[in-house]
Design a protein around this nucleic acid. Structure first.
Lengths: 334, 334
DNA sequence: ATGACCTCTGGGAGCGCTCCCAGAGTAATA
DNA sequence: TATTACTCTGGGAGCGCTCCCAGAGGTCAT
């Protein structure tokens, strides 16, 4: 069943059917209705491949998640929330979402090749981009449409992205710890070659400096965004007797709390804990954290990408979404 | 850049280039090498739309997740793990994955329409199918390729699926509770019009009957697979003083434990708790549970679907994967 | 020498759309 | 009436592939 068949049944030409389907002008009302009736009756759907061949558009955007398994599927609801946000935008703009997940322990190089080889999507949404990400470099060099869901490691002025002001938010988080009287404030960072992580670390040092507190390297643990690293980081930090810890993500914070409890340290009395992202898990664990809507980041990025694809927006475009300090039970004054 | 351009540069015809790209026979070694060199040099990728138009294959499979938000992105790592498993199979067979997520509070009907309208995928992987699922019905009626990742609500003999033996596994779980001396065993089910949930309930009643224990309706809470429902279910069940609870999923079990602790009930001494799935969260919470590899379910289902699409397998095909009782700290003898 | 049967290469047709142009018809204006 | 402008419809061309068939050339048994 194709346009020609529908045309025959409706007693019109292929072109007219095409006009009706694409909701173009210059079709008289009775003809339009007749065609619509036939389409409805035959449950006709135009062939997407044929359409893509001529329009050079597939109405598909790709989403790249090059994280090895545990960060994606483990106890970290960041990516599912992001996907939910993307889905919302994509649905509403009549696009579809092609998902690329790295296999466990897959290196960035093979992952990038895989994503690049399938050229179906009209553009890509990039997460977890590292310093020398081959996918990032390839897309930039080839001038393909993409939007990042965090600030890019380099070429900020040539890349579109959606992010939150990580530096400022981290400053606010650490200031809160300082205000409640904490002085030996440790931090567990996310994967440090991801921009979100390094910016939060910058905010941490900024806040300490502004308060005239020393920056002690032994109180900084370079980790990742998952629970296991939070746990391990906290175990290591414990020997330096911090009275507070700022984790680069909620999931890591939960891991840190587990390590503290295991060591018989009281939370929040002995060590105050603050997270980042306000995932579900933060609510459950009564964790003070920085709230920002991960879903909104996802949907905003998807909308931006589609705007760029469809030429409604000039290319390098930056959106910074707001954050908010949410004080819960994991931080109390000394 | 298309086949014709490459052909010109290599001094051969379009057909020969096509043969090289598709790795067909009847191309002499020197010619093949010459063409490969040009392709490499020009970084040529054939146009997927053109190819799809003639082969009627896109090498894309769709994944439908019609769950409203909290089950998907909340604290439940079931779907991320499933996606990871699907990704593994899809990567290895050179397919891509198109992801359909329901919007929060979206009804099944609009969701189904959306999925059906985009005809790109060669087949679909279905999760969380309910009794009268419009998507399920539509695909079945239209004879389109699909595989379910649980046993289907009806027409089992006409539908391909991958599942675990939920009935048997639930029997084993409840038997374990009986063996450690529990007598008032409650259950919190998953969404009961999803087959996985109802089968686990069947296993529960089977085990009680086999042991000569009464089936007490007040000890059955019809919930969903998320933490909130586990919590709420347990609160309600508490008034009937169970000494054990079998949850339809680990996430619900975690919610149940939270309710028990809140009520000052000791776990596992006063109430033993057992879950299902062995998600990450079960390890963390030291929860006794039924282990089955969600990732394997995903990858097996994807492989099966692709086998069906490519005609290597006759259609209705059923795969039942093994389960295993994992005893941890949440169940001890009375 | 003839035919049968391989290997290898090229070109036409066609997949189902969109885009462009031609032309018929109608209405408004000079 | 002639001209212009706009509305509406149809058909050709072409997007970039794959598939099929024709045909050249080689090998081998008859």
């Amino acid at each position: 069943m194709n346009l020609e068949d529908i045309a025959k049944k409706a007693g019109v030409s292929r072109s007219t059917v095409s006009r009706v389907i694409n909701n173009e002008r210059y079709v008289s009302q009775p003809v339009r209705q007749r065609v619509l009736d036939v389409i409805e009756r035959e449950q006709f759907q135009p062939n997407p491949a044929a359409r893509a061949l001529v329009t050079r558009r597939s109405n598909i955007i790709g989403v790249s998640i090059p994280q090895t398994s545990n960060v994606f599927f483990g106890d970290n609801s960041y990516f599912p929330m992001l996907l939910q946000g993307i889905a919302e935008a994509v649905n509403c703009l009549d696009y579809a979402m092609l998902l690329w997940l790295a296999e466990s322990h897959e290196v960035r190089d093979t992952f990038a090749k895989r994503v690049v080889r399938h050229r179906q999507p009209d553009g890509l949404l990039l997460t977890s981009v590292t310093d020398d990400d081959p996918l990032f470099n390839h897309l930039l060099q080839r001038n393909r449409h993409f939007v990042m869901v965090e600030s890019p490691p380099r070429h900020q002025d040539r890349v579109s992205y959606v992010t939150v002001d990580n530096v400022r938010a981290a400053e606010i988080a650490v200031n809160h710890l300082i205000e409640i009287g904490r002085r030996r404030i440790a931090t567990i960072t996310g994967q440090i070659n991801i921009r979100d992580a390094s910016e939060r670390l910058t905010g941490y040092t900024n806040a300490l400096q502004a308060a005239g507190l020393p920056i002690d390297d032994s109180l900084i643990f370079y980790g990742r965004f998952d629970r296991a690293q939070g746990y391990q980081g906290m175990r290591q930090l414990l020997q330096y007797q911090p009275d507070a810890v700022f984790a680069g993500g909620d999931t890591a914070a939960i891991g840190a709390i587990a390590a503290l409890k295991e060591a018989g340290v009281r939370v929040p009395e002995d060590v105050a804990v603050i997270g980042f992202d306000d995932l579900d898990v933060a609510v459950q664990a009564n964790l003070t954290t920085i709230r920002h809507s991960v879903q909104t980041v996802g949907s905003t990025a998807a909308r931006l990408l589609i705007d760029i694809i469809e030429g409604r927006l000039e290319h390098p475009h930056h959106i910074v979404l707001p954050t908010e300090l949410v004080i819960r039970g994991s931080t109390v004054p000394v």
